[in-house]
Design a protein around this nucleic acid. Structure first.
Lengths: 123, 123
DNA sequence: TAGGTACATCGGCAGATGTGGATATATCGC
DNA sequence: GCGATATATCCACATCTGCCGATGTACCTA
């Protein structure tokens, strides 16, 4: 099959197509480790409940009780517990048990990243 | 039912529980518009394919041909077309038709946000 | 006009995801 | 120990998501 002469990103032909295409761009064949972990984190952020929780934790100067995290949201307890688990497994938060209560805070290793990402203005 | 005396985030009682809890934190009851749109954007970022595409577009000085976006990835054409649609509907990219080819670039309104978010180092 | 090419859309499928009731576990107060 | 409470886990269910083959649409070239 004869492939159509492909455009380069540099020349951007509209009327006159350029010569055959080249090494197009730096597109990795399979996603590298950094891309994979970043995607996992963004996926964890891609839910209003989890985003609200993370925003709260990012603003709190100290660990926050899970009961406080849940009572503003109109969801049942198992559901917010599930979301907290997702955030834990994404490496974004850590939990600490104090008696019956569980206290959550941003994971020390990723807190800077979370705050930087949340600080980006949503226009 | 008698609720247990809840801990405040400030005192963080371990042995001696504090008095009844107060206005705990600024947790919105239902997610506001900003949180909702931010969650949509993060969800769009939460996939390695789309993250790779966005990284490519963020680095490109000019619109990129869809054919270039697709040929590094080991996915069929309908699949990458689907991902591009997701990015379009999330308001992160715009497309432009030039003859048979489609050229993509970051959406002008959200390009700054995308670059800022992608610039956050994944540690 | 006819054939070929680039991209979008449709339809279907397997697996992931969000939600909540029921239940388990651990702790506190009596 | 016993009852009550906070959180986690289990299970089921409806929906969403990623993927691709088949098909549709628009365009280019001859």
């Amino acid at each position: 099959m004869k492939t159509m002469t492909r455009p380069t990103t540099r020349t951007l032909p509209v009327t006159q197509p350029a010569a055959d295409c080249c090494t197009p761009l730096v597109i990795p064949t399979s996603p590298d480790a950094g891309t994979t972990t970043a995607a996992k984190r963004f996926k964890a952020l891609g839910d209003t409940t989890r985003l609200t929780i993370l925003t709260t934790l990012a603003a709190a100067p100290e660990p926050v009780c899970a009961c406080d995290l849940g009572d503003g949201v109109e969801l049942e307890q198992p559901t917010i517990s599930h979301h907290l688990k997702v955030l834990r497994e994404a490496g974004l938060v850590i939990s600490e048990r104090r008696g019956t209560w569980g206290f959550y805070q941003l994971h020390p290793d990723t807190a800077a990243w979370v705050r930087a990402v949340l600080a980006a203005a949503p226009d």
